[in-house]
């Protein structure tokens, strides 16, 4: 299966992105709960891109680990202001916007791997992976 990429520019793209990731996860025969976890995680991450950065993109790519286990890797990047204090942003209940407190820490709970890189002034990139059970 090919990697897919789409731009995240408007609130509507949050819905399109999560529908796309669900379709991809379903095609890869992820179970229904994992499809829902992935779609929800993508909803949170792409919302952040629209909310804080006004624009960004999402890339979804099927991957395999050393044990040939299949997974779906998703990278959401934006060119926004970046996050000054990642530790604070990853704390339950912390938010600088309109009550999106569960966004990042909640997302981390949903996936197998979670990596966030951000430089103040040059954007944020979040990478998540879910492996097939």
């Amino acid at each position: 299966m090919e990697a897919r990429k789409m731009a995240i520019l408007r609130e509507e793209d949050v819905i399109l992105a999560r529908q796309l990731v669900r379709k991809m996860a379903a095609d890869m025969t992820f179970n229904l709960v994992d499809q829902t976890r992935l779609a929800t995680a993508v909803s949170e991450l792409t919302r952040n891109a629209v909310e804080y950065a006004r624009s960004g993109d999402i890339r979804m790519e099927p991957v395999k680990n050393r044990l040939r286990r299949e997974g779906l890797k998703i990278v959401v990047s934006d060119n926004g202001p970046g996050i000054a204090d990642i530790e604070q942003a990853m704390t339950m209940g912390f938010t600088t916007s309109n009550g999106l407190g569960a966004g990042l820490p909640g997302t981390r709970q949903l996936v197998d791997e979670f990596d966030i890189r951000s430089t103040s002034g040059s954007g944020t990139t979040v990478t998540i992976v879910m492996w097939k059970r």
């Binding site: 829902t36 976890r37 339950m92 569960a102 949903l110």
Partner: peptide, 14 residues
């Protein structure tokens, strides 16, 4: 609330 939605919300701590 669908089962998979309930599972996801609880796992998110919400």
């Amino acid at each position: 609330i669908r089962p998979e939605v309930a599972v996801t919300l609880v796992q998110m701590g919400r």
